[in-house]
């Protein structure tokens, strides 16, 4: 299975734009994107909390947004002024950001890019959901001094 370079770049571009838009609209600090790369599913690293969105329709697969507690804490502080959010808040924030990043892709791919409600988990589950024979793209990003991954596996 060979990766299609154009498809890799165009898919990454959509998600990079979506991430950049999220942080520029909601915060005073832009996000920084590092070079995306392909990764074997078994070797994928996740951060502390991860929001997962299932995709169906004209694309099938999953989108993940994964970051450590401090990134979600800082966003929650900006949005609602809570300095010490509980675990439910952190997981809610992980779900909401993954929802927005995936949902905004419909501006380019249209309403047949159908997204699920977010599923959120802490740590790394034994089995991550991806369709078979699909390349998994990892887009590393940073916002302020916090690092995160957007992980995309779409057919």
């Amino acid at each position: 299975m060979d990766v299609n370079k154009e498809e890799f770049e165009s898919t990454c571009r959509l998600f990079i734009d979506s991430v950049n838009n999220y942080f520029s609209v909601l915060t005073e600090h832009d996000s920084e994107i590092n070079v995306p790369f392909l990764k074997d599913i078994t070797q994928l690293e996740l951060k502390q909390y991860t929001g997962m969105i299932g995709v169906s329709g004209n694309k099938k697969g999953y989108v993940y947004f994964s970051a450590d507690q401090e990134l979600f804490e800082e966003l929650i502080s900006i949005f609602i002024g809570i300095e010490d959010p509980d675990k439910d808040d952190l997981m809610d924030m992980a779900g909401e950001i993954s929802n927005v990043i995936a949902g905004n892709i419909r501006a380019n791919l249209g309403s047949n890019f159908i997204i699920s409600v977010p599923l959120v988990f802490e740590g790394r589950p034994d089995d991550l959901e991806f369709p078979e024979n699909t390349f998994v793209y990892v887009i590393p990003m940073a916002w302020k001094n916090h690092h995160a991954y957007v992980i995309v596996g779409l057919q």
Partner: peptide
């Protein structure tokens, strides 16, 4: 108020 940013929706 939604993340679904396509015009059709």
């Amino acid at each position: 108020i939604t993340a679904l940013s396509d015009k059709l929706t």
